[in-house]
């Protein structure tokens, strides 16, 4: 073979080999490279996680540990999911102000955006339940009522006004709960509330329950007059004495008095 022909072919093949190698490596890397955050808008998501981490370190790490592994003041948050954060933080329960048998609802310390950031951060640590996208309160009202009475009324009362549990604990009133809180509570089972997986109550069924709770605590116009708290017969009995007998005794005093 002539010398020049040979060198051109070997130069070409080495370039091709290099190109092939680069393509292979690049492709393999894209296919198998670890990407922790699988969000649609990857860039925004990692910003949220970063912000969330900052908020976490400032407001939560004292009790829950620097890496959310848990500490003296609070349990581990690895795997609790963004739903837990949305429930606890938007209802104001967390950050906990002081020790109590149960974390009470109070004015939320973090706004909606910050809560989302905290949620994204905690979700990034170990996964866990997340709220589905879309509306959470547009389920079937009739189904929701039936499911509510079977699963929820025994603790939260027939109209979501809350009920007593053992030793100073209580199932809170649902009158101020937003749709995402209710959904998240069902998913995560905060404190002593049991949790309801999606295999137990499907997302549609959860949405139905949320719809019913919002309806009975917020939307529904109660026919028949003032509701007396909707705690059942106890306030009704009180009312008949205070209002009914009270008014009537005043009337008897008036009639019986001799001018």
């Amino acid at each position: 073979m002539p010398k020049t022909q040979r060198s051109r072919r070997s130069r070409f093949s080495s370039y091709a080999a290099l190109l092939l190698a680069l393509t292979l490596v690049g492709g393999l890397y894209s296919a198998f490279g670890a990407s922790k955050v699988k969000a649609e808008d990857g860039a925004n998501q990692s910003i949220a996680v970063k912000e969330g981490r900052q908020l976490y370190l400032q407001g939560c790490s004292t009790c829950h540990g620097l890496n959310a592994e848990g500490g003296a003041g609070g349990p581990s948050l690895i795997g609790v999911g963004s739903s837990s954060v949305i429930f606890q933080v938007s209802s104001g329960r967390m950050p906990l102000a002081n020790a109590a048998p149960q974390a009470p609802r109070k004015k939320a310390k973090y706004g909606a955006a910050q809560t989302q950031q905290l949620a994204a951060y905690i979700q990034s640590l170990g996964g866990g339940p997340e709220l589905p996208s879309g509306r959470l309160d547009d389920g079937d009202l009739v189904l929701g009522g039936d499911l509510f009475r079977t699963n929820c009324a025994s603790c939260h009362n027939f109209a979501g006004r809350g009920g007593a549990l053992t030793r100073s604990k209580y199932a809170p009133a649902l009158t101020e709960s937003e749709a995402d809180e209710i959904y998240a509570a069902m998913q995560t089972g905060p404190e002593n509330m049991p949790r309801f997986t999606d295999n137990q109550l499907t997302p549609d069924e959860k949405r139905a329950i949320v719809r019913y709770v919002r309806y009975v605590t917020q939307e529904a116009k109660q026919p028949g007059g003032a509701g007396l708290g909707q705690y059942g017969p106890v306030p009704e009995g009180l009312a008949v004495f205070l209002i009914g007998m009270g008014l009537l005794i005043v009337v008897t005093l008036w009639i019986g008095a001799r001018a």
Binding site: L147, T150, N151, G189, T197, N199, E205
Partner: peptide
């Protein structure tokens, strides 16, 4: 069966869940 008539499977419940 649960209250909607579906049979309950092992794995449906997590720790901390209850089902009628």
């Amino acid at each position: 069966l649960d209250e909607l008539g579906r049979p309950v499977k092992l794995g449906d419940l997590e720790i901390g869940s209850v089902r009628s």
